[in-house]
Design a binder for these strands. Structure first.
Lengths: 351, 351
DNA sequence: CAAAGAGCGGCAAGCGATTGCATAAATCGT
DNA sequence: ACGATTTATGCAATCGCTTGCCGCTCTTTG
């Protein structure tokens, strides 16, 4: 009894003190323990495993937590638990709308699972990406790599050391979610052919891009099969600004249709084409890829290969989390379908 | 001599062992120390304060680091140092293009200073935002709050406890960067008046939005001064989807011009207006706000109030970092200018 | 040549939490 | 009524790293 009384007494004293915001640092678990008159271990348990602690004690602790505005330090916690509660999401360029939806999808899923998203921009750089992946090894529970620039071995090695999922990058032994743009590309060629086009040009993305290479392959194959002569120009950076240069190059070619690496580039081209007096789709058909924000309301609205980007982000995270939970052994390759969305930037080939 | 030899010997043995990736967990500072034959403290210093360690020793340590692929744990490091190297950036909706540039600006500046960006989506929710701010208190070195939904007291209290900068939210004692949209709004009214408009409607944003309220105030004042009758409709969510409903409401009004809370909403309206056969700008002028990605190439290109959003992100981070460095006492309120960018969605009032 | 530095490196005490083990009290079984 | 459980809590080690303080070895210096 006496002891209990003492505790309360002490508690009251502390309360007054602490409610003035304890000049200095934030409350620690020790402060809570002292206020509640228990050991830190009890506080810890009350918070993470309530069943292990007596009803009354827990209540006292909760009250103390409230009074002090105590928030456990994720840092300290992760030190012992080994888990950080953070997942790194690496994208080549946050400003690219393509990644917006991806980021959002990932964020949604992550939030739902109680994880925080550490968003990192690799600035399209191999080196930055590499060092960031290295960093995440110790400082995140897992990594989602969108459109990685790393080579196969590095990727495989990284995946062996930590939970990792790539998006749009297919390497053996590395879990991945793929947007099946080749199928979309095939549909594109079918579409163009049916409109009478026989000479088309592929406006390529960055030279290191896995996606760009895949798209070109698919285009080439479909073109051969369907009788559309495909040529490639590029590479270009996947930005609207690069679109101007690309537009000029397309005009210089003799193609009647341009299949563009992605919508950003395509939208950039649209502006320049208008400047140069090229009417889309009358003089030239333009098909983009990704169906990003903006593709539906640009002028003219862009025919493009639609991809379930947000879903890709969600799925990637889900795969990652399943890796985290059960040690390995879940599906490790997901292919998401894409399809052509025809809008007004494609039309009959000029005669 | 003998001791030194022993160390080397031990080192060699370890090397062979460790190069096989030490089945199990990643290398710690202790592993490096052992391999290099020094104490952990020396390794720590070699890494964070090279001058404090002998040239030769340092080299040996660096070699060990390389062999083991050692990466310091940010968690453990932040435990002692108190700094996490992370800055939380809270935005209401990552999928809103307005925030893209802001995020990018913040990211750039953060990277340059060696910080990581923890991007959090508050989903336009007061509660989520509040709990996230609380979380950041312990788990980040500072917070950037974009378009906060929190009330003044909460914000003031939070700012008193941790480095914090708001964007587009002006509260006494809270460092902030403001996009001076009222000035842009004034310019908008001048522009519309000069085109002959005398009845305009303001399409309001979310009800809790500080920015929306400021814009309306400015519009009202300028309207009164310049002889433009302003009315307000709304509120609407700041999304393209909400634009349809807003468009219908605008059509129902008798206004000849609509000033829209932001571009997302405005772009959404454009589509619906076209559907309803309302020609922009012939029948109705539309002015947006923010000049986001898409505003320049939608149909018609949007007249809008341009704001240096990316710069706002950069400035916010800079202010935050200066708070972190020198304990307080730097400029705490930055106003960034905005101006009207006229494109094709505004024109003479219908007669 | 002894005293005083300067340069280097080690020891050990934390940082804030988690957790296996131990202990004490309460409950149970027979 | 007493040993066996069960329940509730405390103790202390530990996670990986930083840092103040101490001590040893050489140089300088008067």
């Amino acid at each position: 009894m006496l002891r209990r009384h003492d505790r309360n007494h002490e508690g009251v004293a502390l309360t007054a003190n602490d409610l003035t915001q304890r000049r200095g640092r934030a409350a620690t678990i020790a402060d809570v323990a002292k206020l509640a008159g228990v050991a830190t271990s009890t506080v810890s348990r009350a918070l993470s495993n309530p069943a292990r602690v007596n009803h009354v004690t827990r209540q006292r602790i909760e009250e103390a937590v409230g009074q002090l505005g105590y928030v456990p330090s994720a840092q300290a916690r992760s030190l012992t638990s080994g888990r950080t509660g953070v997942v790194g999401v690496l994208v080549p360029d946050i400003a690219n709308p393509f990644y917006f939806d991806l980021i959002r999808g990932a964020q949604r899923q992550l939030r739902a699972a109680g994880y925080a998203q550490l968003l990192l921009d690799t600035e399209e750089s191999h080196e930055i990406e590499s060092s960031m992946v290295e960093l995440m090894l110790k400082n995140a529970d897992g990594v989602v790599l969108a459109a990685s620039r790393l080579d196969d071995e590095t990727l495989t090695a990284a995946a062996a050391r930590q939970p990792l999922v790539t998006i749009n990058r297919d390497v053996p032994d590395v879990p991945t979610v793929i947007l099946d743009t080749p199928e979309g590309m095939r549909q594109t060629v079918v579409h163009l052919r049916s409109l009478g086009h026989t000479r088309a040009v592929f406006v390529a993305g960055p030279s290191g891009s896995w996606s760009s290479a895949r798209r070109w392959e698919a285009l080439l194959a479909a073109g051969e099969e369907l009788g559309v002569e495909m040529t490639m120009i590029g590479p270009w950076a996947p930005t609207a600004a690069a679109g101007s240069a690309a537009a000029d190059a397309v005009i210089a070619s003799s193609a009647t249709a341009a299949v563009v690496f992605n919508d950003l580039l395509a939208i950039g081209m649209l502006g320049r084409l208008q400047e140069r007096g090229v009417r889309v789709p009358l003089d030239l058909s333009v098909v983009g890829c990704d169906d990003i924000f903006g593709a539906s309301f640009c002028n003219p609205p862009l025919t493009t290969v639609s991809a379930p980007i947000e879903e890709a982000g969600r799925v990637a995270v889900t795969m990652l989390l399943s890796q985290l939970g059960s040690a390995g052994g879940s599906r490790s390759r997901t292919v998401l379908p894409t399809y052509l969305t025809t809008r007004e930037s494609s039309g009959p080939a000029p005669t």
